[in-house]
Design a protein around this nucleic acid. Structure first.
Length: 343
DNA sequence: TCTCCACCGGAATGCTTGGATG
DNA sequence: CATCCAAGCATTCCGGTGGAGA
């Protein structure tokens, strides 16, 4: 098999290219890790910790840091259960509770929704095992925020809540929990700087690539394109590495990096667009074609584009959803409001 | 500076769906 | 089977906001 012999193996450990890979060293988030760790400290004494709230834009390592810190906590505490729940995927009460029970192997044999009201919660209340840490990612997507209050009342549970912004969550919260959360620990994540992105990429390269596969200036190129978003940076690295391997190269040339940038960005965007309904996608399409468009004209065109248009009010809901997921940007608040694509 | 009004987004209410219950 | 219920989607109504134009 001479062909195989000629083929260069550049990636030695592909796991480092997965977005959910948690590196053993978390580059440039020491302060946040410390902050979170100290908030969780009561757990090492066998007690529950108050909820911790992590917020910041996408791709700044909130999920990564949460998982890393819980993992590290697990090494320090003899008995600890933990579970990660993505509230976009499991956005209703039943699904979220089901995932939470999964983390302690207490799932009920029921697999359907709206079974006897809240057997799941009852089952959870009965839990009296070791401390249980749950990470609720994209928690602002939870349709029934009261669930947070219910979870809060389970004495063994510690919650780590992750969301894009403070207002998005607190606005929808019930007063009882709002006051608790306002006093609780909040860790704010800001955009990564270019140096930090380079450090993150370098870390992954060191763990999963052959030496010499990519040098620092090229990592800087990737970081520049990513504009503070680590998911984009890692996506570009992944695309470029795969493309280089396919061409049988032992290193990643600048040409391939440039080619991989749009591909990586549209891949991330496509993942989000797939989750949209046809009406939301139609709006996205119109804004995309128009470049920049006002609400009135947008609604006109929308009515022409779909067979059974929804009301203006509903369209506003769709638009705020698109905005929330950084697909579009809305500028202006009243009559001067315009919509355009993000980026 | 004042008034108008396009637009935003909260709240109340109705419609629909999927599953449980008798 | 008919009926009940929870949840999610959609509509209607409406108060607030701030740019546009007199």
């Amino acid at each position: 098999m001479t062909i195989l012999a000629l083929e260069t193996v550049m990636i030695t450990d592909a796991r480092v290219l997965q977005p959910e890979f948690v590196p053993s060293e978390v580059a440039h988030r020491d302060a946040e890790v410390d902050h979170l760790s100290s908030a969780l400290a009561p757990i090492t004494a066998g007690q529950r910790a108050d909820p911790v709230f992590l917020y910041g834009p996408s791709g700044v390592g909130k999920t990564c840091i949460a998982q890393f810190t819980v993992e590290r906590l697990r090494e320090a505490v003899i008995e600890l259960n933990h579970q990660y729940v993505n509230c976009w995927e499991d956005h209703n009460r039943f699904k979220t509770l089901y995932r939470v029970l999964e983390g302690i192997n207490r799932t009920v044999d029921v697999h359907r929704q709206s079974t006897p009201r809240d057997v799941l919660l009852e089952r959870l209340r009965e839990y009296d095992g070791p401390p249980y840490v749950i990470i609720l990612d994209e928690v602002d997507q939870l349709t029934d925020k009261r669930l947070l209050y219910d979870l809060y009342r389970v004495p063994t549970i510690t919650m780590i809540l992750i969301a894009n912004d403070e207002a998005g969550l607190f606005g929808a919260l019930d007063g009882r929990l709002t006051s608790r959360l306002r006093n609780s620990t909040q860790v704010e994540f800001s955009q990564y700087g270019n140096d930090e992105l380079v450090a993150i990429l370098a870390d992954r390269v060191r763990w999963g690539f052959e030496p010499g596969a990519i040098d620092r200036p090229r990592l800087e190129t990737i970081a520049n394109h990513a504009a503070g978003d680590a998911r984009v940076a890692i996506g570009v690295l992944r695309k470029a590495a795969r493309a280089a391997e396919t061409e049988g190269l032992g290193e990643i040339p600048p040409r391939i990096i440039d080619e991989s940038v749009p591909a990586a960005k549209s891949e991330l965007e496509a993942q989000t667009i797939d989750r949209l309904t046809s009406h939301q996608a139609a709006l996205y399409e119109i804004i995309s074609e128009a470049g920049e468009i006002g609400p009135g004209e947008l609604y006109e065109r929308y009515c022409g584009a779909v067979s059974e248009p929804k009301t203006r009010r509903m369209v506003r809901n769709y638009l705020s959803k698109l905005e929330h997921y950084n697909l579009i940007v809305a500028r202006g608040n009243t009559r001067d409001r315009t919509y355009r694509l993000d980026s």
